[in-house]
């Protein structure tokens, strides 16, 4: 298990979503949702528009906090953690509408993410600096108390990557076939490459869980196939688990070993992909789509 973070694993399940409910005014966007994600698995999340898929991603990544229920990462609750803290723990994500950094090259995207992973400043808190107990940093820990307190000043260090960082960047670029565009600014790249850059950026966090939000959206069939192969390779190479939100059922069927179907915030069906997609309930929701 690649788990070199502060949080010690208490469960074999990578992620457990337990009784999560989220309401917006009078609308229940997620209603008692339960999902368990094992190690190195790809889990599909499907459902019609307004089913609550994106809300669930926002809850998982910390952009929204659930009204009820909890989320466990290797058995520990991460309910109150902010998005950056969750990212540093190992929850990487991509976005349906690309959230790339304009003006920066592909390499710089990976560099930023590598450094984000190493930063121990989840939220800027003077109170935390002054009051955090030293016992959080045991002698065996690689990062000592003093080192972490002075970590703030690292932000004034050189912007260019060091040799260690360059090596990691090149490795990631090679694994996703992005080496040729390494020094190109992201706004000059086609959408398919943009999605790969987002994935590379998320992978630079060494994630335990990768959340992919409609990765095939806007891609043609050839690009979607390239992306599908890349996702499979990522799970094998980086030994992480993946949750995919998708509208393209065939894309999910090809990749995911398990799938959950959401409708109006509720789980309609969950289980092994082929079984779920052939169930009558799901066929009713996706009528007209052959499985």
């Amino acid at each position: 298990m690649n788990f070199g973070r502060k949080l010690e694993a208490e469960s074999a399940n990578v992620l457990e979503i337990k009784d999560v409910t989220k309401k917006f005014g009078g609308i229940t966007s997620l209603d008692n949702v339960n999902i368990v994600l094992g190690e190195q698995t790809i889990h599909g999340l499907i459902g019609p528009n307004g089913a609550g898929k994106t809300t669930l991603f926002a809850v998982l990544s910390g952009e929204l906090h659930p009204d009820n229920g909890d989320i466990y990462f290797f058995g520990k609750s991460i309910k109150g953690l902010s998005t950056p803290k969750r990212a540093r723990l190992g929850i990487g994500r991509t976005f349906q509408r690309l959230e790339l950094f304009k003006g920066m090259t592909v390499s710089e995207h990976i560099l930023i993410s590598l450094r984000g992973r190493d930063s121990n400043w989840g939220n800027f808190s003077l109170y935390q600096i002054l009051t955090e107990p030293t016992s959080n940093y045991p002698a065996s820990s690689k990062r000592t108390f003093v080192e972490s307190k002075f970590h703030f000043f690292r932000q004034f260090s050189r912007g260019a990557p060091n040799s260690n960082e360059s090596e990691k960047i090149n490795s990631l670029l090679n694994s996703l076939n992005l080496s040729e565009v390494a020094d190109r600014q992201v706004e000059s790249l086609p959408l398919g490459h943009g999605r790969l850059v987002e994935m590379a950026r998320a992978l630079a966090l060494s994630p335990q869980v990768l959340l992919l939000d409609e990765p095939s959206s806007g891609l043609d069939s050839l690009e979607a196939q390239v992306l599908s192969n890349a996702i499979k390779a990522v799970v094998e190479t980086y030994r992480c688990s993946v949750i995919i939100v998708e509208h393209d059922i065939k894309f999910v069927e090809e990749l995911a070993s398990a799938v959950t179907v959401l409708d109006a915030g509720k789980i309609v069906a969950t289980g092994e992909t082929k079984t779920v997609l052939r169930s009558d309930k799901v066929r009713a929701i996706y009528s007209g789509i052959s499985t």
């Binding site: 990544s61 952009e63 902010s82 998005t83 950056p84 803290k85 990212a87 540093r88 990487g92 994500r93 976005f95 959230e99 790339l100 950094f101 930023i112 993410s113 984000g116 992973r117 930063s119 400043w121 989840g122 939220n123 800027f124 987002e198 950026r201 998320a202 630079a204 966090l205």
Partner: peptide
């Protein structure tokens, strides 16, 4: 995007 890669 920045928050998603752990940046505060």
């Amino acid at each position: 995007g920045a928050k998603a890669v752990g940046l505060s």
